[in-house]
Design a protein around this nucleic acid. Sequence first.
DNA 1: AAGCTTGTTCGATATTTCTCGAACTAATAG
DNA 2: CTATTAGTTCGAGAAATATCGAACAAGCTT
Lengths: 98, 98
Amino acid sequence: MSRITHPPRDALELTRVLHALSDPVRLEVVRSLAENGEQTCAALDGDRPKSTMSHHFKVLRAAGIVETRGERTSHLNRLRAEDLEARFPGLLQAVLNG
Amino acid sequence: MSRITHPPRDALELTRVLHALSDPVRLEVVRSLAENGEQTCAALDGDRPKSTMSHHFKVLRAAGIVETRGERTSHLNRLRAEDLEARFPGLLQAVLNG
DNA sequence: AAGCTTGTTCGATATTTCTCGAACTAATAG
DNA sequence: CTATTAGTTCGAGAAATATCGAACAAGCTT
């Protein structure tokens, strides 16, 4: 089903990453993933509709910030922390601290 | 004329800063200011209309990224690097390196 | 004063983004 | 097989953003 694609490390673009992180809902998701590790989408909605969250995950994936392992019914999301660190050293940490 | 206002250091918001930095034109401006220090708006347009650039400077100022000293005819812009560093340590550097 | 320069503000249009319900897909549970 | 669950996709409406010409303000120059 899901043509869920993740950009390779080298394809990560700074402006796209910054834009993805500039939304409060998505920033919240990123913070939660950083704190609690892998989580399902359901665990990360803040009582927001599924379609809304799906949209935000799509943006996060397209930016290369989140990887979704969609093997099972409940997909697991994780931060692509290593890839982000490789392309934009210190960025993720600075955002998480802010 | 110009109700040019700059938010105090404590009022800087991460999402606003990230959003301001997520535009290619504004990122270019920020990079140039970081490299070359204070510059006028005119020196920073990339052959783009004045009104367009004025809009982008407004966004950068509102985010607290740029300070415009508008005393004279030709305004001077500078990065608020210290304020950014105080609020979001490492962020500016990470963005500039990326 | 008349004109030029620098930049802001306004108004209009085009594009993007956010939000959410509804229909859909796929896997699992009963 | 039917129902449920998890998440995506579609479509629509609302809000924010980007772009740019035109009008404006203020200082500098002659």
